[in-house]
């Protein structure tokens, strides 16, 4: 019997050492990124939230984005991509889910990165780790880990809508901050805040849900344009200018005050986002 006692004690010991019990409070104070050095440019984060208005769990992801923005301010630039099954408008007359939030560019990204095939909500954080899909509960951790890294690029942006409200013009100035050897692309997109429409919130059809950071269009194709295709020296300046025609949309018009242009540079091989900036349309 002695042997058994020893064995049972060992098992009990094993149990004690391999269990952490957390006491209240369960939340910690989040530190903002350490971006104190003024002589360097820090990497910002492009957070792609793949979502759908008929996706019951997606508002939880939007709440996380809210927390993230409160903590990290403009160091994180979120984009909501409505794509896949939950974004598909319903044809049945009884369904309130009629508006089509989807875009060609969003659909293509969704298919390529395989997000809605895994499920919504899910997302990409700067498309790191070979565009690994992160659930919204992992975003905060991934962002805090990847912020305050020093960037190889600086982006300056300008965006204006013409008086006739038919065209948006955007000018992007990219400066390299290092000698670079990889190939890079620049993708410029348009997003819109404050779109009020239905959202399925854990099974409840919310009529006046506010959709923010909604991807609306791309200025330069689904995958952007090559900007560096051969070794580039430090302080190389690349200037690009794009025009986008304002799409006529009776239900949710492209209102200037709600529009932002987002420009991001990514590695043509790995798709990892190297730098991102956004600006309100003027």
């Amino acid at each position: 019997m002695k042997k058994i006692n020893i064995i049972i004690s060992l098992i009990a010991l094993f149990w004690m050492v391999s269990c952490d019990v957390i006491d209240q409070p369960f939340e910690e104070k989040i530190e903002g990124p350490d971006t104190t050095k003024t002589d360097v440019v820090y990497k910002k984060i492009l957070l792609e939230d793949y979502t759908g208005f008929n996706c019951p769990n997606c508002p939880r992801a939007a709440e996380v984005i809210h927390t993230i923005l409160n903590t990290y301010n403009d160091n994180v630039i979120p984009v909501a991509i409505h794509a896949g099954y939950f974004a598909k408008p319903k044809t049945q007359a009884s369904s309130p889910y009629k508006y089509d939030f989807r875009t060609t560019v969003g659909d293509e990204w969704d298919t390529y990165f395989g997000i809605s095939a895994v499920g919504n909500p899910n997302g990409l954080v700067n498309r790191i780790n070979s565009h690994k899909i992160y659930s919204f509960q992992e975003w905060l951790a991934q962002i805090s880990e990847n912020l305050s890294k020093i960037s190889d690029f600086k982006i300056k942006l300008r965006a204006t809508m013409n008086d006739a409200k038919s065209k948006i013009n955007s000018e992007i100035e990219v400066t390299t901050l290092n000698n670079l050897t990889a190939n890079y692309k620049l993708n410029v997109i348009l997003i819109q805040d404050n779109i009020v429409d239905y959202q399925n919130n854990e099974g409840v059809d919310v009529a006046d849900y506010v959709h923010n950071h909604v991807l609306r269009a791309t200025f330069n194709g689904n995958w952007g344009e090559d900007i560096i295709t051969s070794p580039a020296a430090k302080n190389t300046k690349i200037v690009k200018e794009y025009n986008l025609e304002v799409k006529k949309d009776d239900k949710h018009p492209w209102l200037k005050e709600n529009l932002k242009v987002v420009a991001f540079i990514y590695d043509a091989q790995t798709y990892e986002v190297m730098q991102v900036e956004e600006i309100k349309v003027n």
Binding site: E28, E31, L140, S144
Partner: peptide, 16 residues
């Protein structure tokens, strides 16, 4: 054992 990488929540890394 799973590391706690969440900056907001104090997560138990060892769950028994």
């Amino acid at each position: 054992y799973q590391a706690d990488k969440d900056p907001l929540l104090k997560l138990p890394e060892n769950v028994g």
